[in-house]
Design a protein around this nucleic acid. Structure first.
Length: 486
DNA sequence: GCGCCTACGC
């Protein structure tokens, strides 16, 4: 047995089998394994054999623990899949359907379709699926990779994988198309298949929302009329979709009139409607109207949600000043609301934008009492440090990420690499090269522009050798699976 | 299964 450093590290964290020197007759059970520790072990473990051994020797694997670790490794696709594969040979643990879905999502995001379908086959032979959820994930990834036709074929062949299509999966597929701005294609398919799947209000809502996302409110209205003609009653969701559509398309007046019409027709306006209007007015620069609607809703017997507060706080940050936003933030706390990650991210962005970096960092620490910082939190702070020329501080934040909760994503790398050119320092270019290698290693594909920029920089600063290395990496990337934004 | 809040189109 070859016990490496990595395995003894496990002992330090007390997640290996109990020590033999127990005094009490019934020793307390070992503490549950800490997901962060295990995730870091996987990230650092470059020796697959010792890693396998370490993971297999863990006392209790649960689907929940596996899920948590996969989530943590989300921005390191190759490592996440390695982890998933290593557990497949575990003597007793068996993957759950949810873990399979997660691994399939990661493989498809890496555009590693061979692995994706291998996992689907394994899922089937373990009698865990594939489920409609699995197909929603796969088709979404194909569509966002620009392969909508392939996604359609996959949807239509679901039954060959032992998964029957029904109205729910049809709606889910339409939604995938609409969310990636393919409302026209979704609408065509909808017309072809609505009889076969007995399209319902939700199908119509999805299509209407698809047109709204493309700022085509007249088309969305058409869809709504069509549903009425066919004897389906629009729901509050239908109206809220249209309402949002007007504001998103910049039709503020139309949006407000639509809202008044909803009131007039005695439609029970809910917190979503109000949040839409508060946000819509604010984004259009109508801060006073935004506030007025916010104040009105309580009188109308509709309580604001955290999302409503988030909308108002964001509006004040962007169109008024961060100080007034903080007043609302405090008011929210006084009324017993628990801010979520969006609340903090909005406030942190506002503080950064106002040049109050120290306060932003304070909020980032305070945030941990209520929720975990997200990738957006880190990216905002890194971006503003870079803009301020505080490259070292930005890199410190990156270090923190790699040692902790949230791994850097494509945006993080793009922001940082971009910042390595402002000081015209040779050392910065070396860091840019290192970051480029790291991001490729983690399954992100840099744009051609990024490669060329780093190459030029390295050549100009006399780092020909390193430039050669980057060049080799670039040619290797041509055949690598591609990954893009989340 | 759809709708509100971070982030949005170059």
């Amino acid at each position: 047995m070859n016990l490496t450093n990595k395995t003894s590290k496990l002992t330090n964290f007390k997640i290996s089998p109990k020590p033999s020197s127990t005094i009490s007759p019934s020793p307390p059970p070992p503490p549950p394994p800490d997901p962060a520790t295990i995730a870091n072990l996987i990230l650092k473990g470059d020796n697959p054999e010792s890693l396998t051994q370490a993971l297999h020797s863990l006392p209790e694997w649960t689907p929940h623990l596996v899920q948590t670790i996969l989530k943590r490794l989300w921005n390191h696709g190759p490592k996440a899949l390695q982890f998933f594969n290593l557990l497949e040979t575990h003597p007793s643990y068996r993957h759950s359907a949810a873990s399979f879905d997660h691994a399939i999502d990661i493989a498809a995001r890496l555009r590693d379709y061979k692995t994706t379908w291998t996992l689907v086959c394994k899922m089937r032979s373990s009698k865990l699926g594939p489920t409609p959820k699995t197909f929603a994930i796969i088709t979404e990834r194909y569509v966002s990779a620009g392969k909508a036709d392939k996604a359609l074929k996959i949807f239509l062949s679901m039954h060959e994988h032992g998964c029957q299509q029904d109205l729910n999966s049809f709606n889910a597929f339409l939604d995938v198309l609409c969310k990636s701005k393919r409302a026209e294609m979704a609408y065509k398919l909808f017309k072809i298949f609505r009889g076969r799947f007995k399209a319902d209000v939700i199908s119509y809502n999805i299509i209407a929302n698809g047109f709204c996302l493309k700022k085509q409110t007249p088309r969305a209205l058409e869809v709504m009329r069509e549903m009425i003609e066919r004897g389906l009653e629009p729901t509050l969701t239908t109206y809220n979709i249209l309402l949002k559509g007007y504001f998103r398309a910049g039709q503020i007046k139309e949006g407000w009139e639509f809202f008044l019409q909803m009131k007039k027709r005695k439609i029970e306006i809910d917190v979503v409607s109000y949040t839409t209007v508060v946000h819509g007015f604010g984004v259009a620069g109508e801060v006073e109207k935004s506030r007025k609607v916010f104040d009105e809703m309580v009188g109308a017997g509709v309580l604001p949600s955290v999302a409503t507060y988030n909308a108002l706080i964001q509006v004040l940050c962007k169109k008024d000043c961060v100080e007034n936003a903080l007043v609302v933030f405090d008011e929210m706390l006084r009324r017993g609301y628990v801010p979520n990650a969006t609340t903090y991210n909005v406030v942190i962005r506002g503080l950064c934008h106002a040049g109050k970096m120290d306060m932003a960092i304070e909020f980032m620490d305070k945030m941990k009492d209520d929720c975990e910082p997200t990738i957006q939190t880190f990216n905002v702070v890194i971006r503003y440090y870079c803009d301020d020329g505080e490259i070292e501080k930005a890199l410190e934040v990156l270090e923190k990420m790699n040692g902790g909760t949230c791994l850097p994503n494509l945006d993080t790398y793009n922001i940082l690499i971009g910042a390595m050119f402002v000081r015209k320092k040779s050392d910065d270019l070396l860091i840019a090269g290192k970051l480029l290698i790291e991001m490729v290693d983690r399954g992100f594909l840099p744009r051609k522009f990024t490669f060329n920029r780093v190459l030029n920089g390295l050549m100009l600063t006399g780092n020909q050798g390193f430039a050669q290395e980057i060049l080799r990496l670039q040619s290797k990337c041509g055949s690598l699976p591609r990954q893009f934004r989340l």
